[in-house]
Amino acid sequence: MNEQKASHNADEVKLIQAAQKNIQFFRDLYQRHYKAVFRFVYARSGNDEDLSADLTQQAFVKAMLNINRYEYRGVPFIAWLYRIALNEINLHYRNSKKARSVSIDEHTVKLFIEEIDDEFSEVKLEALKLTMSDQNEEVVQLIEMRYFEKRSFKELGEILGISESNAKVKVHRILKKLKITLLKKMQLLTGEKK
């Protein structure tokens, strides 16, 4: 498995070096990673296909313009692409002043709520929505990638440009804070219903 991964990485490094010499060779990297980047953007753009296509294209253009600055340091190339795509998404929502979309499917949200507060209920889901809507971008990104997209701490670190241990610490602190806020929101919601 590790050998397979190492050969995949070596292969990718060769493709990157080829693209740095002649940008036409970027085609291979594009074909290899397009679907993953598109899905990443699609989940954050309110499931808008055309907007996702535009933002993905913009992300690839930025990657091509900056490929000469890219240095391989053991981090997969896709993490660099995700980071560029994330910046493009943030830029788009900042300029358009619309609310950024966060996709959470029901199954993962149940698991997430169970992790921070034992049992799942509809009230808790509403409380979670309220809690999430107050958080800053970094908190939402970490929760989204860790719990709703099931990414490892290593991947999280690679995408956000922080170390694996730093990502772990941040997620742990966020969960702690989120639990308190979630309980408050729940009390508020149940109080309102009574």
Binding site: G46, L125, S133
Partner: peptide, 12 residues
């Protein structure tokens, strides 16, 4: 709200 939270996201 700062975010539009979708609990039933579509997949392609």
């Amino acid at each position: 709200s700062k975010y539009d939270i979708k609990t039933k996201p579509l997949s392609l």
